[in-house]
């Protein structure tokens, strides 16, 4: 019996979202009185044993560098094999691109009920009830998983990373053959900008109030000073002021960073649906009636062109 945790690599490092899901999986294993095992797919990295400090006893590494994301059929087959081998009781993913691609397939393959977008540990006192985010962050649903094996995908920023000790995890190289799929990746392209929106801990976002793409310098400058990603509202992406992948909102990317700073965005309900899971929301808008202020933690009613340079300066002086 075990809890299998799917951890992901980016630039040879375990992603922050994966550290969250490792902490979640370890806590869940403790709750169920079973072991937790992390499964890492991708290029060899030498510090996997240090994942022991999050409470993991064992890490299984699979050297496979092709896109498991795209070839989710292969990824699913491989994870299913590991689950059988390790007698998995629960499998936990991040609700990431990989989780969205693979978890549903695995649900069918293992005949295991899946809840995506979990926000806390399940209630196992009577059944196996997982609380998940629904209605684009406007509500929660409690979903009981009825099958013997359960699969959960955890939302970003929903669970605290917990370091437990200096313990070292045992790292095992997987000997399962992955095989080849029938998909052919023709091209891969990296987005411009340094930090990907989905992984970003802080996000600075601009709206129509900025009047034109030529005024994005201050958004980028503040983002850079904060180590944040940049984003925008839908009208901005639709006017091609900014690339579409920066659009956050109901029909764009849904994000849940620690800090979301919205500049010149009025806060239409569809925009809020994409950002309302952010921990701290700051709104800067010249219109005191902007609906966004109702959803904000901090607000400045003022002209962005006058306020932003002072904020940027204050952030740079933080040290």
């Amino acid at each position: 019996m075990s809890v299998i945790i799917i951890a992901e690599l980016s630039e040879k490092k375990i992603k922050k979202q994966s550290l969250e899901v490792i902490s979640y999986g370890v806590a869940l294993a403790n709750q169920l009185g079973t072991d937790s095992i992390a499964l890492v797919m991708g290029e060899t990295v030498d510090n996997l044993s240090s994942l022991g400090k999050y409470g993991l006893k064992k890490v299984i590494h699979q050297q496979h560098t092709a896109s498991m994301l795209s070839d989710n059929k292969l990824a699913c087959r491989f994870i299913a094999d590991v689950c059988t081998q390790e007698q998995a009781k629960v499998v936990v993913f991040s609700n990431s691109l990989l989780g969205k691609a693979v978890a549903p397939r695995l649900s069918v393959k293992l005949r295991a009920g899946l809840v995506t977008g979990a926000v806390k540990l399940p209630d196992t006192s009577n059944g196996f009830k997982v609380r998940k985010s629904v209605f684009s962050g406007k509500a929660f649903a409690d979903v009981d998983i009825l099958t013997p094996i359960k699969i959960i995908s955890l939302n970003a920023n929903a669970f605290e990373i917990i370091q437990q000790s200096d313990a070292v995890a045992e790292v095992v190289e997987s000997s399962i053959e992955i095989g080849a799929g029938t998909l052919n990746i023709i091209e891969t392209k990296k987005n411009e900008g340094n930090i990907s929106l989905a992984d970003a801990d802080r996000v600075v976002s601009g709206g129509r109030g900025l009047k034109g793409p030529e005024n994005w310098g201050m958004i980028e400058e503040l983002a850079q000073a904060l180590g944040a990603a940049t984003a925008c509202s839908r009208p901005v992406a639709d006017s091609n002021w900014r690339p579409h992948h920066e659009h956050v909102g109901q029909t764009g990317v849904a994000i849940s960073p620690n800090l979301y700073i919205a500049v010149g965005i009025s806060g239409a309900i569809q925009h809020l649906a994409g950002v309302n899971r952010s921990k701290t929301i700051v709104v800067i808008n010249s219109d005191p009636e902007a609906p966004f202020f109702k959803a904000a933690d901090y607000g400045i009613v003022g002209d962005a062109f006058q306020v932003m340079p002072k904020i940027i300066e204050a952030v740079k002086n933080l040290g």
Binding site: L114, F140, D142, G299, G302
Partner: peptide
């Protein structure tokens, strides 16, 4: 494989803390 047993609404926000526009450094 699953059954929804109930729903809940998130707790209401405490309300926005407004910072005067002439001292934006206070926000930081």
């Amino acid at each position: 494989f699953t059954a929804v047993t109930g729903f809940d609404l998130p707790p209401a926000k405490a309300g926005v803390k407004l910072i005067p526009a002439d001292t934006p450094e206070l926000l930081v």
